[in-house]
């Protein structure tokens, strides 16, 4: 395992003594050169998990490991410097994640500049090389972010993360702000980089079809917990957890005949906020198969095959 968590927790204080349990006991591992997809509704804690994993949020509890070394619970400036060489992030919003007052050269070259091992001209050459690699023009380095389209900015964000040749990258909804035709460009680019650099990725998205397409394994999150995890095709075509089943039933596909044949059993209710969570399964109030036991007893994780696990009382 290149990256691994054990019971990772991240709570936020939201005033009046209340705690928001954004990530509540997640144990996941990612093998080298693997893409793990993380899906779930907004508010399920996907981004918080990604950020806590690489130290952008201090964690509340649990452990996180990189190359089997434990990461500090709260990163100091020196930790950030040491670990950001290997742990990087591509952010969701290509509009707000680039400093509008910095040129592309400064944005993309900042990582190398901070590492302090490259001269200015070396940084410039590297930036030029990376801009070309992500499909932009090297002449664009003197421009500012506002001069680019959403897809181009996302590529700048990718070049920024990749230039220091990290081992592990958290991609937080890297394509959700992009048009369909451009999404495919970015996905193919990530795939090429994964193969050429031997990268390991945590791919966070809410588009199930895309996550299935991109990732080797897939984990489904609900209110701060992972409810199902397994090889992507297995989870997608043979979902076990009631939540995963409903999620996949709700996911329309670009095929009118299949849509007409679809059983309409759409999920009831909405995701709540994980504030001051008590015991019991967090999906119990929306679950069609819930029993009295589900609202009092924490579900246990059951392995249904070598790699496929479900956290649900039905499998106990």
């Amino acid at each position: 395992m290149l990256v691994r968590t054990e019971g990772l927790q991240k709570y936020f204080k939201i005033g009046r003594g209340q705690m928001l349990h954004a990530v509540d006991g997640i144990s996941l591992g990612i093998e080298k050169n693997e893409i793990l997809g993380l899906v779930g509704e907004s508010g399920s804690g996907k981004s918080t998990f990604g950020k806590t994993l690489i130290g952008l949020h201090p964690r509340t509890g649990g452990k996180a490991y990189y190359e089997e070394q434990e990461l500090p619970p709260k990163f100091s400036a020196a930790d950030h410097l040491a670990y950001s060489k290997n742990l990087q992030m591509i952010f969701q919003d290509p509009y707000s994640s680039l400093n509008p007052r910095m040129t592309v050269l400064d944005i993309v070259g900042e990582g190398l500049h901070i590492q302090g091992q490259h001269s200015k001209s070396q940084i410039k050459d590297e930036v030029a090389a990376w801009l070309t690699q992500v499909g932009l023009n090297a002449d664009h380095m003197s421009r500012y972010p506002h001069e680019f389209s959403g897809g181009q900015r996302q590529r700048i964000g990718i070049a920024r993360a990749m230039i220091i040749k990290p081992k592990f990258v958290v991609c937080d909804e890297p394509i959700s702000a992009l048009d369909v035709s451009v999404q495919a460009q970015v996905i193919n680019l990530l795939d090429d980089l994964k193969n050429s650099l031997g990268l390991t990725l945590l791919f966070i998205a809410h588009d199930l079809s895309m996550v299935r397409y991109v990732s080797d394994r897939m984990a489904v999150m609900y209110l701060g917990t992972v409810v199902e995890c397994g090889p992507s095709d297995e989870v997608f075509f043979n979902p076990q957890h009631p939540y995963t089943k409903l999620l996949i039933e709700s996911n329309p596909e670009p095929d009118p005949k299949a849509e007409r044949a679809r059983q309409h059993a759409s999920i009831k209710g909405e995701i709540t906020s994980p504030i001051n969570m008590g015991p019991g399964c967090r999906f119990a109030d929306r679950c069609p198969s819930a029993t009295a036991r589900c609202s009092v007893e924490d579900p246990k994780t059951t392995k249904i095959s070598d790699q496929h696990s479900v956290t649900c009382n039905l499998f106990d």
């Binding site: 369909v180 035709s181 451009v182 999404q183 495919a184 460009q185 996905i187 193919n188 079809s209 895309m210 299935r212 397409y213 095709d233 997608f236 075509f237 996911n251 596909e253 670009p254 095929d255 299949a258």
Partner: peptide, 16 residues
Amino acid sequence: AMPSNRNDRAKKLTPI
């Protein structure tokens, strides 16, 4: 440019 939900993972997405 869109992934289909069929089991044809080998097929690469064709961007525009």
